[in-house]
Write a protein that binds this DNA or RNA. Structure first.
Lengths: 202, 202
DNA sequence: ACTCCGACATGACAGATGTCATCGCGGGTC
DNA sequence: GACCCGCGATGACATCTGTCATGTCGGAGT
């Protein structure tokens, strides 16, 4: 019997998913969590075989949870389920030791199968997402550029961004300028949009 | 037996939800749809008692589908289920004749109950969302301001926005300026962010 | 008829932003 | 040691934006 931890902030979805997994003879949901922190706590307590994590959750997101679980309990196989599958997320997930990555558009049978796959040590990523990730390539941004772009993501004026990242306004402008150029955007706001779409910034 | 139409682009969720609703003795899912257009077609074909619509779907979104269903088949009770419950969406939904509005964070039993409620002619909106909607109030933007702001939502420079809405660049700047002022934003990009948060633009 | 308001436009000006050249510092690499 | 590259900074310049004053036009109310 494969013991599954289920984390998703949407109660309705989580409940429905749990019911569905319980329907499988060889699966049992031993814990549910609505936030990243809950998921982590539940994982320590129950030591499940597989952790099914939603990407976007309040508090720690699925990727951060997966990272910590992977460090603390390497025996627990993590997999990510998400509505918005950005290429960058997949890369980060794999880097962090995630063994399964599925969009919520996949069918129920696939989910159960993937749970079994990762439990036996295998990996599975959605083919379409994988293709996108390959097509998108790696981020062209330096770490600092990504930081600054993210700090500018809410549309705040340069000065405020500069305060957030503790840089001079001029430096911020330079970073944003090069970032926008690398992303082929006309200004930083477009740059933010494309970087978001690619999953290069949160 | 209450006949339910279920529309959600996330296959996993839709399937799980369907199973869950089928578990109720007095409910049966007669059709499922992954897009707005499919939902509309299925609704015409099956004439269900209740249509459960996700807000964000490819093609027509839940609100547009609800509007058309309400016009074409007033006998079909529409309800919206969504992950991101913005205050503005709720207002628009009620204006369009939607009878139930729930975030996906609600529990499964609530969903079933609300399906029954709207079927008997009642209404149900999530109390928390209702409170937010009241607190948020109506959009301060004129229709045209909202249009222009939405056209500027992806961060495009003024000229491009002007092209999209067939206006002179100067006029666009004026609209964006007044919109930003009304929303208390430092620039149009912040204005876009707050308008999005409130559900005043898609 | 008169008034108000929203849609649309123009012109002008200040301040914010994008761009570029240039600099120093430190960590790798050949 | 020489070199490249990323990080951080400055200054100058051109352009883009935000703001305001001002005007026209048509529809809705009174």
């Amino acid at each position: 019997m494969i013991r599954v931890l289920l984390a998703d902030d949407e109660h309705l979805i989580r409940g429905a998913l749990a019911q569905m997994l319980e329907l499988e003879d060889d699966l049992t949901v031993v814990a549910q969590a609505a936030t990243g922190d809950e998921a982590l706590a539940a994982c320590r307590r129950e030591a499940p075989d597989v952790a099914v994590l939603d990407l976007q959750m309040p508090g720690l997101d699925g990727l951060e949870v997966a990272e910590r679980i992977h460090r603390e309990q390497p025996g627990v196989a993590c997999m990510i389920v998400t509505s918005h599958g950005r290429p960058g997320h997949l890369k980060r997930a794999l880097a962090v030791g995630v063994r399964g990555f599925l969009p919520k558009t996949t069918s129920a049978v696939t989910l159960a199968e993937v749970v079994r796959t990762v439990h036996t040590g295998g990996r599975h990523v959605d083919p379409e997402l994988a293709a996108e990730a390959i097509a998108a390539g790696d981020t062209p941004l330096t770490p600092r550029e990504a930081d600054v772009l993210e700090a500018a993501a809410d549309g705040a004026p340069v000065d405020r961004v500069a305060g957030r990242v503790h840089l001079s306004p001029g430096t911020v402008r330079n970073y944003l300028s090069t970032a926008a150029a690398k992303l082929g955007a006309a200004n930083r706001h477009e740059a933010v949009a494309t970087a978001r779409r690619m999953g290069w910034i949160s």
